[in-house]
Write a protein that binds this DNA or RNA. Structure first.
Lengths: 319, 319
DNA sequence: CTGTTAGCGCGTTCAA
DNA sequence: TTGAACGCGCTAACAG
C-alpha cells in the first residue's frame, strides 16, 4: 500500500503538498493538485488512519457501554446514538458488559488509552468514584441519575416516575399492587423499589416480599412471573412492570391462561416500546431514541451536563 | 499524560527497557523492572494505543455491519460475535447501515484505511464485485450465501429451508399458504420468494400476489398483516413467516381478534428466538448466536471459508 | 504557493 | 542485559 511519501515522489511534490490536497487545504496550484490527485488514483491510495489518530490525538471513536445488545431497551438507545454518530462522522465501539464490572473497567481504560474520544455508559456498574476518576482522561456521560456526582448524565428519575405510576394505579382503586424489577443491584431498581416501599408505607399497606419480582428483564420472563402469580392465594390485582418487554410477556401469558387483563390483573409498563403500542399496554413513555441522540451529542461536546428526562403516561387498555 | 520517554527518564533507563517491561519481554534485570514499574505507577502511565496501532499495523477492532441494531435477529448474531470478541481481546465497531449502501461502503473503506482488522457483514447491500475488491485490503466475512463468489461466508440456504417449511405445511394438508418476507430486494428474501413460487408451481397452485407480504420485519408488523388477512375473502389457512418476531406479532393480533391459531390460521416462524419458545410458535431454528461466534472467529483467522448452516424444525403449537 | 523539518508515542533491529 | 537509533505514516509550524 502506497503511503504519502510515495504519492509525493510520484507526483513530484513534497509530502506537505500531498497532505494539503488530502485535507482540502487551499493554496495549492491547480497543476500540482492535479498531479497529486492523479498519483493517488494511480496507486489506489488511502490514508492510514492510525497515523492520523496518533498525531491528532483522537480517533472519532465513541465507546458505548451496554449490558446486553439483545434488549430492545438498549437497542433503542443505541439506535439514537448511532444516528447522531453517523451525522457527526463518528463511529461507535460497542462494549457489552453482561453486568460484569471488569468489562466496564476495560472500557474506561480504552478511554484513557486514547482509543476512544468519549464514553457513553448506558448502565453503570462500577462505583461513582471510579467513573469520576476516569472522567479526567476523557469525556464520559452516563444514562443514569448522577445528581450529586461530578459526572455528566442524562437520566430519568425512577423514584418519581415509579411513584407516579403507583399513584395512577391507586387512582384506579388498586390496593394490592405488585412490582417487577430488573437486577436487584441496579441503581434504577433500587430507586424504584424505594418508591414502591415508600408508597406502601404512605398508604398504610404492608410490604409483601412475594409481591416483588426481581430479574424481570426479557419478554420470556413473563412466564415465570405469571406462574408465580397464579400460585399465590392472595395475588396482586395490579402489576407495575418496569419494562414493556416484560409487560408484554406477562400479557401474552395471561391471554394464554385466560386471565383477563385488566379486570383480574392490571398491568402498567415502562418505556412505551413499539410492542406496547401494538399490544395496547398502558405504559410510561421514555423517549429512548431521543435520549440516545442527546447522549451522543453531549458526549462529544464535552463539559459538565446533567438533565432529567420526564416520563409521560400513555393510557391504553391494560389498566 | 506521561509517555514512554518520561517513564524512561524517571526510572533512569532507556525507552527500550520500558517497552520491554510493558510487553513482558524477558531479559530485564529485576531492579530495572522494579524501577520502571514504580515510575509507571507514579505517573499513572498508560500506553497510547494509537501509536501501537500505527506501528503494528493493526487495531484489534472488528467492524460489524448490520442494518439495524433494534432487530433481535441481528442482536443475537452480534451477541455471539461480542462474546467471542471479548475472549480474543478484540473490540467491535458497530456500523448501522439502515440498508443504505453508502454506509456499507464507508465500512469497507475503514477496512482499507486500516482502522479495522476485519469486517463482518451481517446483511450485505452492495454488489459482490465491490466486496470482493475490498477483500484484498483485509479480512471480510459475510452472513449471506456467497457460493460462487470469492468472499468468505457463513450462511443458511434460505431456498432450501423455505422449501422445507412449505413441505411441512403441505404435509399438514395446508393448500392455501401465504408468505411473509422482509425487504423485497434482500438476497434472502429473493431466495425465499423463489422457493415459494417454485413450490406453488410444483403443487399446481396458482400464485396470488395478495398472499405475499413484504417488509414484514418487526413485531408490530403483525398488525397490518392480520388486518390485510381479515380483509381477504379467501385468506390463506397457513402463513410462512420468515421471522419469529413477526410471527409473534401476528399471533398476538390473532389472539386479540379471536382468530384461532392454528385451526383458522397456522403459523410457522423462523429463527427460534426466545419469544417463539414462550409463545409456543412452531419455527425453524437458526443458531444465530453460534453463527455470530463463528463469524468472529473466521473473521480474525482470515483465509477463505464458506459454510452452510442447517436449520432445524421445532414443532410447537401454531401449526 | 511550496518544501524542509520536526515530531506524535511506540516497537524493534543491531551492536555493545 | 541494555540502549541508541530508526521508522510506522502523517500533520503542522516555519521558512522561503
Amino acid at each position: 500500500m502506497a503511503n504519502i511519501k510515495d504519492i509525493a515522489k510520484l507526483a513530484g511534490v513534497s509530502v506537505t503538498t500531498v497532505s494539503r490536497v488530502i485535507n482540502g487545504i487551499p493554496y495549492v496550484s491547480d497543476e500540482k493538485k492535479e498531479a497529486v490527485l492523479r498519483a493517488m488514483e494511480l496507486t489506489n491510495y488511502e490514508r492510514n488512519m492510525n497515523a492520523v489518530h496518533l498525531i491528532k490525538g483522537k480517533t472519532n471513536l465513541i465507546g458505548v457501554v451496554v449490558p446486553s445488545i439483545k434488549r430492545p431497551y438498549f437497542g433503542l438507545v443505541i439506535e439514537g446514538i448511532a444516528e447522531e454518530a453517523l451525522k457527526n462522522n463518528n463511529n461507535l465501539v460497542l462494549i457489552q458488559t453482561n453486568y460484569e464490572e471488569h468489562r466496564e473497567l476495560e472500557a474506561l481504560k480504552m478511554l484513557k488509552l486514547k482509543q476512544l474520544d468519549a464514553l457513553i455508559i448506558c448502565s453503570k456498574i462500577s462505583n461513582w468514584e471510579i467513573v469520576e476518576e476516569y472522567a479526567n482522561y476523557g469525556s464520559i456521560i452516563v444514562f443514569e441519575d448522577a445528581r450529586g456526582r461530578s459526572v455528566s448524565s442524562i437520566f430519568v428519575d425512577h423514584y418519581k416516575s415509579c411513584m407516579e405510576a403507583l399513584t395512577y394505579l391507586s387512582g384506579k382503586s388498586h390496593r394490592k399492587v405488585g412490582c417487577c424489577l430488573a437486577r436487584k443491584s441496579g441503581t434504577s431498581s433500587k430507586q424504584r423499589e424505594l418508591a414502591y416501599r415508600d408508597y406502601l408505607h404512605n398508604m398504610g399497606e404492608p410490604f409483601d416480599p412475594n409481591y416483588i419480582f426481581y430479574d424481570a428483564i426479557h419478554f420470556e420472563d413473563g412466564e415465570w412471573i405469571v406462574q408465580r402469580l397464579t400460585a399465590m392465594h392472595n395475588p396482586p390485582t395490579a402489576l407495575l412492570v418496569t419494562s414493556d418487554q416484560v409487560a408484554a410477556g406477562i400479557l401474552a401469558c395471561c391471554k394464554e391462561r385466560e386471565i383477563d387483563v385488566p379486570s383480574r390483573l392490571a398491568i402498567v409498563g415502562f418505556d412505551n416500546q413499539p410492542i406496547a403500542k401494538i399490544l395496547n399496554i398502558t405504559t410510561f413513555e421514555i423517549p429512548l431514541m431521543e435520549i440516545g441522540r442527546e447522549l451522543f451529542l453531549r458526549s462529544i461536546s464535552g463539559g459538565f451536563f446533567q438533565k432529567e428526562i420526564p416520563v409521560k403516561l400513555i393510557e391504553r387498555l391494560t389498566v
